[in-house]
């Protein structure tokens, strides 16, 4: 029982990270119907940015409390990652809007290759690791055993919850959110009604990247190590989460993320850690084949 609960907590932590990345996939797919293949690598880039910022801030302002440093890192990393994502959209996707269907996908794959190799080139191929930032946690006695709820995990789950709430507010209540939903329905009509479609799409990329940066900072706090190739697998898993939750649906992405996190952790705990990625990919395939509209997505009726 205690083992199970421990894994549950671990799964929710991991799932929060996946959910945050998944939102970027689901929003972009919702608005321009494109799989932003480079999004996983944007996440990886954000981990690097966060890592460097953290080192920079702690070395410049030695006496700063860890909490303040982390908040600073979070804000700057969100801004810088958003800048990158804006630039990527501007250079690689916007010129292709309304063109050949495969072109944006190929362009996104090219962008993904570029980002991986760019980071490898400027930061080197080795793993980058930092000592644990936050240590300790609550020991909770349950029945015969103990479970640990570390401060890191609390931080991750809380940050995710708070930022998701803020994000949800933007998408539901502001004019930007309304413009996004309008573009999702009918881009041409939205532009006829005076919505700046290009700007709305750019902002969608920016928001997705900012959330990926949140995931990046949390990833750094949790694992403290990153490699230039760390974007691909979390990216695919987050995409799986988006699909599982129903692509285009924001709550779906979060639910999907949590599910994927839980499945991965329980699979590793009870079956085989070697095959945990196989499990994730299998879930992706099975979902797409048998339940392509996911948990919260709308079923797609074929227009004849």
């Amino acid at each position: 029982m205690d083992y199970f609960l421990q894994q549950l907590i671990n799964g929710l932590t991991l799932g929060s990270v996946y959910g945050l990345i998944a939102i970027g996939y689901t929003m972009v797919y919702g608005i321009i119907g494109m799989i932003n293949f480079a999004h996983g690598d944007v996440f990886m880039l954000s981990v690097f940015i966060a890592l460097i910022l953290f080192l920079l801030i702690t070395s410049l302002f030695g006496g700063l409390a860890i909490a303040v440093a982390l908040v600073l890192v979070l804000i700057i990393a969100m801004a810088l990652t958003a800048l990158w994502s804006w630039a990527i959209e501007r250079v690689a996707y916007r010129p292709l809007r309304g063109s050949f269907r495969l072109a944006p996908l190929i362009s996104a794959i090219g962008m993904s290759i570029f980002l991986i190799n760019f980071v490898q080139l400027v930061q080197g191929p080795r793993n980058k690791s930092i000592p644990p930032i936050i240590e300790g946690g609550f020991e909770i006695q349950i029945g015969s055993g103990d479970i640990t709820l570390s401060y890191k995990q609390i931080l991750i789950i809380l940050t995710t919850a708070v930022l998701l709430a803020a994000f949800w507010f933007i998408v539901q209540k502001t004019s930007l959110g309304r413009a996004q939903r309008a573009c999702e329905q009918d881009r041409k009509m939205a532009s006829l009604l005076g919505i700046d479609v290009d700007r709305t799409i750019s902002l969608t990329f920016v928001m997705g990247a900012a959330l990926a940066a949140v995931a990046g900072v949390l990833f750094m706090v949790q694992y403290g190590v990153v490699n230039f190739s760390d974007g691909f697998v979390p990216g695919i898993k987050a995409f799986t989460a988006a699909v599982l939750g129903g692509i285009g649906s924001l709550p779906g992405a979060v639910i999907g993320g949590l599910l994927i996190g839980l499945i991965e952790v329980f699979w590793s705990a009870y079956f085989s850690i070697d095959y945990k990625d196989v499990a994730a990919f299998s879930i992706l395939a099975i979902t797409l084949i048998f339940m392509p509209s996911g948990i919260l997505g709308k079923p797609d009726v074929e227009k004849v």
Partner: peptide, 9 residues
């Protein structure tokens, strides 16, 4: 990677 993006554009 850059060539892929450039070619598509």
């Amino acid at each position: 990677g850059m060539a892929m993006v450039g070619m598509m554009v």
